[in-house]
Nucleic acid binder design. Sequence first.
DNA 1: AGAAAAAGGTGGTCTGACCACCTCTGAACT
DNA 2: AGTTCAGAGGTGGTCAGACCACCTTTTTCT
Lengths: 219, 219
Amino acid sequence: MMTEVNSLQTHAKVYIGIVHQLREMISKDCLKPGDKIPSERELSERLNVGRSSVREALRALELLGLIETRRGEGTFLRDFRDHHLIDLLGMFILQDDMAQEDILQTKMMIEKEALKALYIDKRKTDSLHVSVSECENLDDVFREIVMMSSNYLSQRIWNILNDFETLICGEKKLTAAMREELITMLSGIDHQEKETVQETYRRVRKIVDEDATISNIFF
Amino acid sequence: MMTEVNSLQTHAKVYIGIVHQLREMISKDCLKPGDKIPSERELSERLNVGRSSVREALRALELLGLIETRRGEGTFLRDFRDHHLIDLLGMFILQDDMAQEDILQTKMMIEKEALKALYIDKRKTDSLHVSVSECENLDDVFREIVMMSSNYLSQRIWNILNDFETLICGEKKLTAAMREELITMLSGIDHQEKETVQETYRRVRKIVDEDATISNIFF
DNA sequence: AGAAAAAGGTGGTCTGACCACCTCTGAACT
DNA sequence: AGTTCAGAGGTGGTCAGACCACCTTTTTCT
């Protein structure tokens, strides 16, 4: 049976209201990351709601990475850039049925983009040369490359995907052949030879692919 | 007796453990969007935790848009693509220009990758020509392009980022100039002129950028 | 059989009670 | 005086129980 009266927004949930109140409070008092927000009991009193409702709002914001709670100390604003939006969605979206191929493709897309950014600052390839000779795993090298990009969001996405992939496939040891290709790739960057870089990158990833996944050959 | 929720890390918060348990429960029982999950009281009993802790976990997931609660009925799984967490994050991150730039960059990266995939199947450009002439917004065209790629993961990431960006910047109306560039771009794809495609893509995005900054001046 | 009333389940909220942990303070000690 | 440390008070973490409003299902009455 239809109850129009109740279908309207007369019964907004309390914790949602608290989230909005908190947002206003933050912008009104110009609170910055690291600042302390009122205690749960004080909020409960000031907003005329139960402490459990306050906690529901705070827990939600905490899961989003917007606040941080320290037992015995209080609740603090976090740097929004640390938001685990991606982590969370990853937890629920990147579930088991996600095609392994999609993950690799997306990872590679980010890596290629990060490689392009390297053309600008040659000094960075120096430390990469060191990494190539010292790192155990291929992804450690690419992690460094991706972390050199200025796109923090892409960095986070790459990390999630890499963790997930490592979980499924295990780690990819750096072979001598790979190191050689990587060095060629870095030289290509130094000399702005974009074709060479693309080609060597493809080759490195191909070596890994052949080493690891034989069953996926039809894709 | 050890509670399942706390078995891993003694210092982990209960509600975080519950979130993980729920995730496992979902994948183990193959729950799909729309399915009902156990009631708060049942979860509380099954996991040996208080009902308020269960609620903290559920409220957090609800704020993320991962579940939906209906009073008197129960709690249900939502389609993950409905994520209205965007509203929430936008409320808090709105002023973060850096994050905004990261989002655009990452979106563009996905779009460029999707464009490359188009070279393989020419028929797809036919429906894109229709979209270019019919769509109101630029992102509707690129949505179609991205959705044509076979990478479901990238598709989902793009959707999330686009929602987020739309919330912050508003929609980007398709101008005549843009349509012209897009048509050139599609022709480039048909004729395998990769340079042209890259160039026109850059140009389209540049137009948008200039439009946006202009409107920002007046606001 | 059909309609109305009651029962039972569910989320929504509040309260009060503990616990563990942190910080600060002030008294005791050197 | 300066140092140390035990205790008080504040804070988040958790639980149990009590209502309420709402929905569905069952029972009862006409």
